[in-house]
Amino acid sequence: MIEDIMNMLFNGILNGAVLALISLGYSLVYGVGGIMNMAHGAYFMLTGYLLLWGMRIFPGMLFLTVIFVIIIITIIGGLTYILLIKPLQDTHVGVVLITFGLAFLIEQWILIVSGTTSASINDYVLFPGTTEFLGYSMFNQYIFFIIASLVIVSLFALFISKSKLGKSIRAVSQDREAAVLMGINANRVLLYTVMISAFLAAIAASLYLPGAALTGPGMGWTYLTSSFAVIILGGMGSLVGSVVGGYIMGFVTSFTSIFLPNGPSWAHVVPLIVILIVLIIRPRGLFGKKKLR
């Protein structure tokens, strides 16, 4: 029983850290540019596979590969904005369709290269070994990930509130036209925003996925919908909301999968139920100020 509770708490924090990092970027991009990037889950999934392939090509250079993969994903995020999103910014349908197409393209490409079978990248953990705490053993990698995620979230909050780029990001998100009149290059700010969001997803994936498994190229969609549920719960475009919502969702998911009968399969349904409840009771989410756009 105690083991179950510890298991639930640890997994809850872990899931929460992953979801918080993913949905932070996702929410940021929506809040600043009104852009719905459907390829966001694909970045997460692609990171895992690039890590797998990268380690096969350069065995023994784990740190370098991880950093390299994160840089690649960030560049892919930037290219997505420049090549696909920017020309279509005025039509919402166009942006959604084209990023959906991109996500599908990445999924199919990986399907062709590596097949549907799930791969394990357990060997590529940065910090091997386990630590015992109250009779419960935890992966060192995951402990590092949880701490790193907390640090990244706090650094991100500092960056948004103090730095010059962070201030211009906030300015564009509040009133794009006024920001442009004040001499802020809104397109460049949006480019940086999309790159930051890809960067956050890549960090989450490269620290979380070794230890978990790559369950096939379709897993990007699962993370996309979970982070969607998180930002509905936390409030659209609210950064605090997406972090808090991420942890709540993480705990709810791990509670379901450990304590309910047939839990692990029901845990997939949790995001939908959360979306439904939030939409019916409080459509603007926990921390949302604006109405739905």
Binding site: M36, M38, H92, V95, V96, F100, W221, T222, L224, T225, F228, A229, I232, M236, S265, H268, V269, P271, L272, I275, L276, L279, I280, P283, L292, R293
Partner: peptide, 23 residues
């Protein structure tokens, strides 16, 4: 429930519904 969502959010909401039904 989905009609409380607009634009791209409706897209994701329906996508979530279909994925959950698939699961």
């Amino acid at each position: 429930p989905c009609l409380r969502l607009r634009g791209p959010y409706l897209a994701l909401g329906t996508l979530a519904f279909s994925l959950v039904l698939l699961k």
